[in-house]
Design a protein around this nucleic acid. Sequence first.
DNA 1: AGCATACCATACTGTATGGTATGTATTTAT
DNA 2: ATAAATACATACCATACAGTATGGTATGCT
Lengths: 188, 188
Amino acid sequence: MAADTPQKPRKSKLQFIHAALDILATTGSVKALTIDRLCRQLGISKGSFYWHFKGRAELIEAVVDFWADEFQQSIHQNIRQASDNEPSRTFEELVSFWLSSNFAQLDQVMRNWARQEAAVAKAVQQADLLLMDFVSQQIVAMGHQQTEAQYRARLLIAVGIAEPQISHLPHPGSLHETVNWVAKKVLS
Amino acid sequence: MAADTPQKPRKSKLQFIHAALDILATTGSVKALTIDRLCRQLGISKGSFYWHFKGRAELIEAVVDFWADEFQQSIHQNIRQASDNEPSRTFEELVSFWLSSNFAQLDQVMRNWARQEAAVAKAVQQADLLLMDFVSQQIVAMGHQQTEAQYRARLLIAVGIAEPQISHLPHPGSLHETVNWVAKKVLS
DNA sequence: AGCATACCATACTGTATGGTATGTATTTAT
DNA sequence: ATAAATACATACCATACAGTATGGTATGCT
């Protein structure tokens, strides 16, 4: 909604958004996303920020919109690749995408943020629906029924969400073996 | 460590801790756990708080210790019941315990908090290890091998962690059916 | 040149928060 | 009873934060 295209200042606005996402990903906390810190990181002062944004709320809206767009695009990109590849290959790519630490961090931040700010909750929810659709369709393409695919997709997504949070638990073998075990289990 | 037993002021200290946990569970955010709010909720003023606690850090330590103790006790209680019941019954109790919204909320808060405060991270990690042990032993009792049980326990825990975070995703059937499906899948 | 707009810096205000200092009431020990 | 320890209240301070006011600079347009 707010991410329309006012061509002129967009480039600099993007810098703010990128810096904001960087803060979120590195600190892992929304609290750390202060305007002062954002400006410090960009080497500018608050006067500049408040020229680009009406306030913190507008920044947040822009950041969330950008994240949602990025999420959606990466899903669609995976879908396009999926039509070329065989399903199992797509599956691997999905896993490696998920395990990219930058994504996992942001994912956790957004999910947690969603419990406080309604705008974030909406974005996360839509992202989840998109992901759910994609994953279950992928599983259908592997020869499962719709309902079964939904159950399996939900299970997979759950693992994707939770695994970064329990990475301190020792694996029986390696992380890779665990991933393989889960994949086999979910798709069997 | 800090939760030793200085008999005298313990009753009032417990009130603070309970109120703090209540705030965490209802708001779902650590940021909301301010000293002012805590005192307001207890109907007292800051002077009282700072008599019982040296500062916010000490409160946090006490809260986390209390939570860890509570967690550990509920696990041990389940273990004791487990020796009487058949494994599947224990399993049901574990699920219902997990789905109690109060626990899930606190769990999420603690997990998130753990990414910022090392003391919380340590407590969560120990709790996870305990839970992992319990669940995998339970699965072994159902006739699985050690390694297999660990994989399955990890999967189960992942679902327990993630499910409250994706509750907005529509179930193919009911929540109950999803739980049954997962249980069957994990234990098959 | 003169002017307007975009962009940024500095210095300020107001508020929320953690923390302290000091006083006061209540309980407890002697 | 009364002195001391306990348990709380009130008033204050320091800091961090969002937001504002205002002035300065750079760049393009006329």
